[in-house]
Design a protein around this nucleic acid. Structure first.
Lengths: 147, 147
DNA sequence: CTAATTAGTTAAGCGGGCTTGAATATATCG
DNA sequence: CGATATATTCAAGCCCGCTTAACTAATTAG
């Protein structure tokens, strides 16, 4: 089977194009929102798991808890994150996106989606159908591989 | 046709999962290489167009020429970028990735590719085939939409 | 030839995100 | 209860990437 050889090559090319675009989009999003790379990452993390603690953030982001606390504080002051005391353990804080925070991140995702949709407009209906099915598969598979 | 409605939804879900992963990978790559977000973006830009000028960098990245010059200088000192005088216009510099610089960026791409390959290992051969064809289409289409 | 423009660099300074180390408050263990 | 561990915050300070402003050098326009 020649599929394997092809496979790596195809994926690598896709990653190359996508990473480039990805970087540019990220930068634009940072400029548009005034948020730092780190802050956006934190918000995205929060979108995926609701009710997360400050030290979880630090751990996942590879920064100290002090840094995480400061970053979260900035986001709270911007009204993008809600920080409430955990009733079970009053030392801990529960962090959650506010509606504003969620809306902001969704706008970022929307921009990225738009790019892919634009790309696919040059494809035939049949090809689009295949892209849909492939992305569905990839999304599913990716979800199941989450830490 | 219900395809259109589905389509946006599927793409949005994919973008959501992928952006999240993308951010984490980017962060890891930054930590692993000691490079900043901006520096990586510059290197990626250079990979796509060889022989670019300092002010082009500034323009594309949305930073001042002074900032671009400084960033490039750091990359040159790290041995990742080659800066030569343009014989046609001796004010200008031609910037190019060194072999080291290219290798470094490729390593980043490799990591991202690996993730997708891992994901797809849970798929059937038939499904993998579809993913390959879809990614090929997307890569092609994306290339034709550059800037 | 002079003046204006263009490409890039340099210098000074600012702000943000990070670190370490200490402080506070709560929880848990013996 | 007292000692220890855990979750977070505060304080001081560092480094880096950015900006503005001034400067050098080469090109182009009048």
């Amino acid at each position: 089977m020649q599929t394997d050889k092809l496979f790596s090559e195809v994926v690598r090319e896709w990653a190359k194009v996508f990473m480039h675009r990805s970087g540019r989009d990220f930068k634009r999003f940072m400029d548009a929102t005034g948020l730092s790379f780190s802050q956006i990452n934190i918000l995205m993390r929060m979108m995926h798991e609701d009710s997360i603690g400050v030290s979880d953030i630090g751990e996942k982001m590879g920064i100290t808890n002090a840094a995480a606390s400061q970053a979260v504080d900035r986001l709270v002051q911007m009204g993008l994150v809600e920080r409430t005391e955990d009733p079970q353990d009053r030392r801990a804080k529960r962090l959650k996106l506010t509606p504003d925070g969620l809306a902001l991140i969704k706008k970022g995702i929307e921009a990225r989606s738009q790019w892919i949709e634009n790309i696919t407009q040059s494809l035939t209906a049949e090809q689009q159908e295949m892209v849909i099915r492939a992305l569905t598969l990839l999304t599913e598979a990716a979800r199941q591989m989450e830490d």
